[in-house]
Write a protein that binds this DNA or RNA. Structure first.
Lengths: 136, 136, 136, 136
DNA sequence: GTGGTCTAGACCACG
DNA sequence: GTGGTCTAGACCACT
């Protein structure tokens, strides 16, 4: 009875991220912000592929990565569903990944010419809806 | 008689970024933090390649990208020098890039389970030395 | 200078595991048993695909899963290398996975008619060379 | 007048195994542990399907696989009954299947970081109630 | 209908 | 040369 949530995903060819990543990131964000609640069914591989006009394999790959990371569960013949949140990674690995993400981010924004306060404000605005939600 | 600044660059094979990007990011960071001041001469392609034990083509590629982005200027027969800060990107482009960087960052840290405050603190610490320097 | 280790992999069509899994499991075993030491270069995607007469994409998929699990590191343009061991998973997740693995194993051996002692002996023999090695 | 044994089966959507396999494995385990003794009648396809709220086709498929493997016998018009234990597989086939099960298990637990003794203890605990029962 | 696997072949970035 | 991405299309298992 769980209806498939529409899911607004915007692919952009100007975005340097590969399509698979854009899809995965978009869904990750939707799950973290509870736009897609636990147990919700995701659009089918073929359906989403058609909606985004990309190859079904591309969608399938994004989905399978999300499944490997514990964001979604796959049920043979039924579809894909938002999984209950659980901590997959060790503390050491989480800390390591945070460091990498910050280094990458720093390299990306250096040279854009924005003052620190502006960048921080934007980061806060982007993270607020996706952090501290799934454990609330 | 501007002496070539030594330039401490640490390439890491554990770092997922390709070597070209590690070099470019490292130099970009050094310029932004004024470790390499305006007018300072950069190491030669061959010299840096030897120092880092990488292919000279890789260094040359990193340099040419930095030049295209306006970070460094090449003076024929003399070498490469840190350029005066100037903004080469349109406001729309800068804003778009910031948005993408933030999206990517958000996707990376979501699911790590850290509270917003912790992430923000880390980001601030990482950005402080590289932002607000060249525009000061 | 690190020569590619030959790597004996036996694919079997009688094996119910999909090819991707057989490849991944085989390499995981080789790394865990230190047959492939840390830093060793793995056979190239195309090379291994040719050796096993499977599609390069299949090998690439197996490799990318191993990379996601932290077994190997990929270096653009250079190849794939055995990564230094690190604990990626949280205690809760490790315990969960052990439980699933044991349940699956139990379901597989029930009905084969072997006495408990025989099964345990075989399991011990199989696990001895792959457990307690990477931390030794 | 053999009454249908209630049969406690727990289907879990968190379990990665497909439903057919969960049903088959559950019944196999119940028979092996003598929870379902030889001659006991199994619930009807429709009854079990209703109890588990799954498609009757799924239950029927699970039953037909169990029958093919010799676990249960169908008596026309009467229903399905637990068969007397017999070995339908050749020694070579049994040995091959044990090998595959052990390989899969080893690949699953390698990398979890548990000491051999801990894994063996858990395996013993899981196998004790289902092995050495039907041949005793 | 659903997802999962596999093949084939193309194009790109990196060194 | 290396790996990474994407498309196209086929076949299978599950519900």
């Amino acid at each position: 009875m769980s209806k498939t949530t529409p899911l607004m995903l915007q692919l952009s060819s100007a975005d340097p991220r590969p399509i698979v990543r854009q899809i995965g990131d978009g869904i990750r964000r939707a799950i973290a912000s509870r736009e897609l609640p636990v147990g919700a069914q995701l659009p089918s591989v073929r359906g989403l592929a058609q909606q985004l006009t990309v190859n079904p394999n591309t969608v399938a790959k994004a989905y399978s990565e999300l499944a490997a990371e514990g964001w979604i569960d796959s049920r043979q013949g039924l579809g894909l569903f938002v999984a209950a949140p659980r901590q997959m990674l060790s503390d050491a690995e989480r800390s390591r990944r945070l460091g990498i993400a910050i280094d990458t981010f720093a390299a990306d924004v250096v040279g854009l010419g924005y003052p620190l306060s502006h960048v921080i404000d934007q980061v806060k605005a982007a993270l607020k809806p996706v952090l501290n939600k799934r454990t609330a």
